[in-house]
Protein backbone atom coordinates (compact mmCIF):
# COMPACT_ATOMS: atom_id res chain seq x y z
CA UNK A 1 0.00 0.00 0.00
CA UNK A 2 1.33 3.38 -0.99
CA UNK A 3 0.96 6.05 1.63
CA UNK A 4 1.72 9.73 1.49
CA UNK A 5 3.77 10.68 4.53
CA UNK A 6 3.21 13.94 6.34
CA UNK A 7 6.70 15.05 5.33
CA UNK A 8 5.75 14.59 1.70
CA UNK A 9 7.71 11.41 1.01
CA UNK A 10 5.99 8.31 -0.27
CA UNK A 11 6.59 4.90 1.17
CA UNK A 12 5.36 1.39 0.64
CA UNK A 13 3.96 -0.33 3.69
CA UNK A 14 2.45 -3.74 4.17
CA UNK A 15 0.03 -3.00 6.97
CA UNK A 16 -2.38 -0.07 6.89
CA UNK A 17 -1.55 2.63 9.46
CA UNK A 18 -3.13 2.22 12.90
CA UNK A 19 -4.22 5.86 12.85
CA UNK A 20 -4.55 8.05 9.79
CA UNK A 21 -5.20 11.78 10.15
CA UNK A 22 -5.65 14.03 7.10
CA UNK A 23 -6.17 17.80 7.20
CA UNK A 24 -7.81 17.55 10.59
CA UNK A 25 -9.08 20.84 12.09
CA UNK A 26 -11.06 21.60 15.17
CA UNK A 27 -12.60 24.92 16.14
CA UNK A 28 -13.89 25.57 19.65
CA UNK A 29 -16.65 28.04 20.42
CA UNK A 30 -18.71 30.17 18.09
CA UNK A 31 -18.62 33.59 16.46
CA UNK A 32 -16.17 36.11 17.88
CA UNK A 33 -14.83 33.77 20.56
CA UNK A 34 -13.99 31.08 18.07
CA UNK A 35 -10.60 29.46 18.65
CA UNK A 36 -8.82 27.32 16.12
CA UNK A 37 -7.44 24.55 18.35
CA UNK A 38 -6.10 22.33 15.57
CA UNK A 39 -5.28 23.41 12.04
CA UNK A 40 -4.76 20.94 9.21
CA UNK A 41 -3.08 18.15 11.09
CA UNK A 42 -1.62 15.37 8.93
CA UNK A 43 -0.45 12.34 10.81
CA UNK A 44 0.10 8.70 10.13
CA UNK A 45 0.80 6.30 12.96
CA UNK A 46 2.08 2.85 12.09
CA UNK A 47 0.84 -0.29 13.79
CA UNK A 48 2.85 -1.07 16.88
CA UNK A 49 4.43 2.38 16.90
CA UNK A 50 4.98 4.36 20.11
CA UNK A 51 4.22 7.95 19.19
CA UNK A 52 4.52 10.95 21.48
CA UNK A 53 2.63 14.18 20.89
CA UNK A 54 4.75 16.87 22.50
CA UNK A 55 3.68 20.46 23.00
CA UNK A 56 3.18 23.30 25.45
CA UNK A 57 -0.03 23.54 27.48
CA UNK A 58 -2.96 24.55 25.32
CA UNK A 59 -1.40 23.47 22.01
CA UNK A 60 -4.33 21.22 21.25
CA UNK A 61 -2.54 17.91 21.84
CA UNK A 62 -5.32 16.70 24.15
CA UNK A 63 -7.90 17.88 21.63
CA UNK A 64 -6.17 15.75 18.99
CA UNK A 65 -6.19 12.77 21.34
CA UNK A 66 -9.90 13.26 22.11
CA UNK A 67 -10.64 13.37 18.38
CA UNK A 68 -8.78 10.10 17.81
CA UNK A 69 -10.63 8.64 20.82
CA UNK A 70 -13.96 9.60 19.27
CA UNK A 71 -14.81 11.76 22.29
CA UNK A 72 -14.96 14.86 20.10
CA UNK A 73 -15.88 15.55 16.47
CA UNK A 74 -13.52 17.33 14.06
CA UNK A 75 -14.65 20.53 12.35
CA UNK A 76 -13.08 19.28 9.12
CA UNK A 77 -10.66 16.66 7.87
CA UNK A 78 -10.39 12.93 7.80
CA UNK A 79 -9.66 10.48 10.59
CA UNK A 80 -9.32 6.72 10.42
CA UNK A 81 -8.56 4.39 13.30
CA UNK A 82 -7.91 0.69 12.65
CA UNK A 83 -9.41 -1.93 14.94
CA UNK A 84 -12.37 -0.02 16.35
CA UNK A 85 -12.65 2.09 19.49
CA UNK A 86 -9.21 2.88 20.97
CA UNK A 87 -8.57 2.53 24.71
CA UNK A 88 -7.95 5.79 26.57
CA UNK A 89 -6.05 6.65 29.73
CA UNK A 90 -6.14 10.08 31.38
CA UNK A 91 -4.04 12.01 33.88
CA UNK A 92 -6.73 11.14 36.44
CA UNK A 93 -7.07 7.36 36.67
CA UNK A 94 -10.87 7.79 36.40
CA UNK A 95 -11.37 4.38 38.00
CA UNK A 96 -14.94 3.81 39.15
CA UNK A 97 -14.83 4.41 42.91
CA UNK A 98 -17.75 2.07 43.62
CA UNK A 99 -15.97 -0.94 42.10
CA UNK A 100 -12.96 -2.90 43.31
CA UNK A 101 -9.77 -2.92 41.25
CA UNK A 102 -10.69 -6.31 39.75
CA UNK A 103 -14.23 -5.15 38.93
CA UNK A 104 -12.85 -2.03 37.30
CA UNK A 105 -10.57 -4.09 35.09
CA UNK A 106 -13.45 -6.46 34.32
CA UNK A 107 -15.72 -3.59 33.23
CA UNK A 108 -14.65 -3.31 29.58
CA UNK A 109 -14.69 -7.12 29.30
CA UNK A 110 -18.25 -7.13 30.58
CA UNK A 111 -19.24 -4.40 28.13
CA UNK A 112 -17.98 -6.62 25.34
CA UNK A 113 -19.96 -9.59 26.68
CA UNK A 114 -17.10 -11.80 27.89
CA UNK A 115 -18.18 -14.80 29.98
CA UNK A 116 -17.53 -14.64 33.76
CA UNK A 117 -14.89 -17.36 33.51
CA UNK A 118 -13.10 -15.57 30.69
CA UNK A 119 -13.33 -12.29 32.64
CA UNK A 120 -11.78 -13.79 35.77
CA UNK A 121 -8.97 -15.30 33.78
CA UNK A 122 -8.20 -12.10 31.85
CA UNK A 123 -8.44 -9.87 34.95
CA UNK A 124 -5.96 -12.09 36.81
CA UNK A 125 -3.62 -11.98 33.81
CA UNK A 126 -3.76 -8.20 33.51
CA UNK A 127 -3.40 -7.51 37.22
CA UNK A 128 -0.32 -9.70 37.23
CA UNK A 129 1.02 -7.78 34.24
CA UNK A 130 0.78 -4.45 36.09
CA UNK A 131 1.89 -6.00 39.41
CA UNK A 132 -1.42 -5.40 41.18
CA UNK A 133 -2.48 -9.03 41.74
CA UNK A 134 -2.37 -8.52 45.51
CA UNK A 135 -4.77 -5.58 45.28
CA UNK A 136 -7.60 -7.10 43.26
CA UNK A 137 -10.14 -6.67 46.07
CA UNK A 138 -9.04 -3.14 47.01
CA UNK A 139 -11.03 -0.07 46.14
CA UNK A 140 -9.41 2.74 44.13
CA UNK A 141 -9.24 5.15 47.09
CA UNK A 142 -7.14 2.60 48.99
CA UNK A 143 -4.41 2.70 46.33
CA UNK A 144 -1.58 5.18 45.84
CA UNK A 145 -1.52 7.43 42.79
CA UNK A 146 0.93 5.19 40.94
CA UNK A 147 -1.08 2.07 41.69
CA UNK A 148 -4.24 3.77 40.49
CA UNK A 149 -2.56 4.56 37.16
CA UNK A 150 -1.42 0.95 36.88
CA UNK A 151 -4.98 -0.21 37.52
CA UNK A 152 -6.20 2.26 34.89
CA UNK A 153 -3.61 0.82 32.48
CA UNK A 154 -4.83 -2.72 33.19
CA UNK A 155 -8.40 -1.56 32.55
CA UNK A 156 -7.38 0.09 29.28
CA UNK A 157 -5.57 -3.09 28.20
CA UNK A 158 -8.69 -5.11 29.04
CA UNK A 159 -10.42 -3.40 26.14
CA UNK A 160 -8.19 -5.39 23.79
CA UNK A 161 -8.04 -2.34 21.56
CA UNK A 162 -5.28 -2.11 18.95
CA UNK A 163 -4.59 1.52 19.83
CA UNK A 164 -3.95 2.90 23.31
CA UNK A 165 -4.29 6.66 23.78
CA UNK A 166 -2.64 8.18 26.84
CA UNK A 167 -3.29 11.79 27.88
CA UNK A 168 -0.41 12.79 30.21
CA UNK A 169 -1.07 9.68 32.31
CA UNK A 170 1.92 10.15 34.63
CA UNK A 171 1.96 13.95 34.88
CA UNK A 172 0.61 13.96 38.43
CA UNK A 173 3.14 11.44 39.76
CA UNK A 174 6.53 12.16 41.32
CA UNK A 175 9.67 11.66 39.21
CA UNK A 176 10.70 8.38 40.85
CA UNK A 177 7.31 6.78 40.34
CA UNK A 178 7.06 8.14 36.81
CA UNK A 179 10.42 6.56 36.00
CA UNK A 180 9.16 3.22 37.30
CA UNK A 181 5.96 3.43 35.30
CA UNK A 182 7.90 4.35 32.14
CA UNK A 183 9.79 1.06 32.54
CA UNK A 184 6.55 -0.84 32.99
CA UNK A 185 4.80 0.85 30.11
CA UNK A 186 7.74 0.11 27.81
CA UNK A 187 7.75 -3.53 28.89
CA UNK A 188 3.99 -3.90 28.43
CA UNK A 189 4.04 -2.11 25.08
CA UNK A 190 6.78 -4.44 23.84
CA UNK A 191 4.87 -7.48 25.05
CA UNK A 192 1.49 -6.52 23.63
CA UNK A 193 2.53 -4.92 20.35
CA UNK A 194 0.01 -2.11 20.90
CA UNK A 195 0.06 1.15 19.04
CA UNK A 196 0.51 3.88 21.66
CA UNK A 197 -0.23 7.57 21.23
CA UNK A 198 1.15 9.34 24.26
CA UNK A 199 0.47 13.02 24.95
CA UNK A 200 3.00 14.88 27.10
CA UNK A 201 4.44 18.33 27.69
CA UNK A 202 7.64 16.79 29.08
CA UNK A 203 10.50 16.47 26.50
CA UNK A 204 12.35 13.95 28.70
CA UNK A 205 9.31 11.72 28.89
CA UNK A 206 8.90 11.90 25.11
CA UNK A 207 12.59 11.04 24.53
CA UNK A 208 12.40 8.21 27.07
CA UNK A 209 9.35 6.52 25.56
CA UNK A 210 8.78 7.35 21.91
CA UNK A 211 9.74 5.78 18.59
CA UNK A 212 8.75 9.10 17.07
CA UNK A 213 7.97 12.49 18.59
CA UNK A 214 5.57 14.91 16.94
CA UNK A 215 6.09 18.47 18.18
CA UNK A 216 2.98 20.63 18.03
CA UNK A 217 2.85 24.42 17.91
CA UNK A 218 0.21 26.39 19.79
CA UNK A 219 -2.76 28.46 18.70
CA UNK A 220 -3.45 27.07 16.23
CA UNK A 221 -2.12 23.58 16.89
CA UNK A 222 -0.04 22.46 13.91
CA UNK A 223 2.60 19.82 13.38
CA UNK A 224 5.77 21.89 13.84
CA UNK A 225 8.40 19.19 13.77
CA UNK A 226 9.00 15.48 13.88
CA UNK A 227 11.84 13.54 15.52
CA UNK A 228 12.64 9.87 15.14
CA UNK A 229 14.16 8.30 18.22
CA UNK A 230 16.81 5.71 17.41
CA UNK A 231 17.77 4.65 20.92
CA UNK A 232 17.84 0.96 21.81
CA UNK A 233 15.30 -0.36 24.30
CA UNK A 234 14.92 -0.82 27.19
CA UNK A 235 15.96 2.78 27.71
CA UNK A 236 16.91 4.73 30.78
CA UNK A 237 15.72 8.28 31.29
CA UNK A 238 19.27 9.33 32.25
CA UNK A 239 20.95 7.60 29.27
CA UNK A 240 23.16 10.04 27.31
CA UNK A 241 21.24 9.52 24.04
CA UNK A 242 17.91 10.12 25.72
CA UNK A 243 19.20 13.22 27.52
CA UNK A 244 20.68 14.62 24.29
CA UNK A 245 17.42 14.16 22.43
CA UNK A 246 15.45 15.62 25.36
CA UNK A 247 17.72 18.67 25.12
CA UNK A 248 17.04 19.05 21.41
CA UNK A 249 13.31 18.67 21.96
CA UNK A 250 13.42 21.28 24.72
CA UNK A 251 15.27 23.74 22.46
CA UNK A 252 12.81 23.18 19.63
CA UNK A 253 9.86 23.60 21.99
CA UNK A 254 11.32 26.88 23.29
CA UNK A 255 11.78 28.16 19.75
CA UNK A 256 8.19 27.30 18.96
CA UNK A 257 6.85 28.97 22.09
CA UNK A 258 8.89 32.14 21.41
CA UNK A 259 7.74 32.09 17.82
CA UNK A 260 4.16 31.70 18.95
CA UNK A 261 4.29 34.70 21.25
CA UNK A 262 5.88 36.76 18.44
CA UNK A 263 2.95 35.72 16.32
CA UNK A 264 5.17 34.08 13.71
CA UNK A 265 4.64 30.35 14.08
Amino acid sequence: MSVLRSDGTQSVELAPPAVLVRGLSRRHGRGEQQVLALDGIDLEIAQGEFLCLLGASGCGKSTLLHLIAGLDKPTSGELRVEGGQPAVMFQDSALFPWLTVAENVAFPLEMRGASPARRRERVAELLELVHLDAFAAHRPHQLSGGMRQRAALARALAQDARVLLMDEPFAALDAMLRDLLHDELERIWQRTGLTVVFVTHNPREAARLADRVIVLSSRPGRVADEFTVDVARPRRIDAPDVSRLAGRLTDRLKEIIRGDTDGAA
Binding site: L71, P86, V88, P97, F107, R112, Q159
Partner: peptide, 26 residues
Protein backbone atom coordinates in the same frame (compact mmCIF):
# COMPACT_ATOMS: atom_id res chain seq x y z
CA UNK B 1 -17.71 13.80 37.00
CA UNK B 2 -17.79 14.04 33.16
CA UNK B 3 -14.50 12.13 33.02
CA UNK B 4 -16.16 8.99 34.42
CA UNK B 5 -18.85 9.20 31.76
CA UNK B 6 -16.24 9.73 29.06
CA UNK B 7 -14.26 6.72 30.26
CA UNK B 8 -17.43 4.63 30.37
CA UNK B 9 -18.14 5.60 26.77
CA UNK B 10 -14.68 4.69 25.51
CA UNK B 11 -15.12 1.28 27.17
CA UNK B 12 -18.24 0.67 25.15
CA UNK B 13 -21.03 1.63 27.58
CA UNK B 14 -23.82 3.43 25.72
CA UNK B 15 -27.37 4.59 26.35
CA UNK B 16 -29.15 2.79 29.15
CA UNK B 17 -26.16 0.58 29.96
CA UNK B 18 -24.06 3.71 30.45
CA UNK B 19 -26.73 5.09 32.78
CA UNK B 20 -27.19 1.89 34.79
CA UNK B 21 -23.54 0.91 35.08
CA UNK B 22 -21.77 4.30 35.25
CA UNK B 23 -23.99 7.34 35.79
CA UNK B 24 -26.38 5.88 38.36
CA UNK B 25 -23.69 4.26 40.57
CA UNK B 26 -21.65 7.47 40.40
Amino acid sequence: PPLLVRVGRTMGARGFVLFRRVIFPA
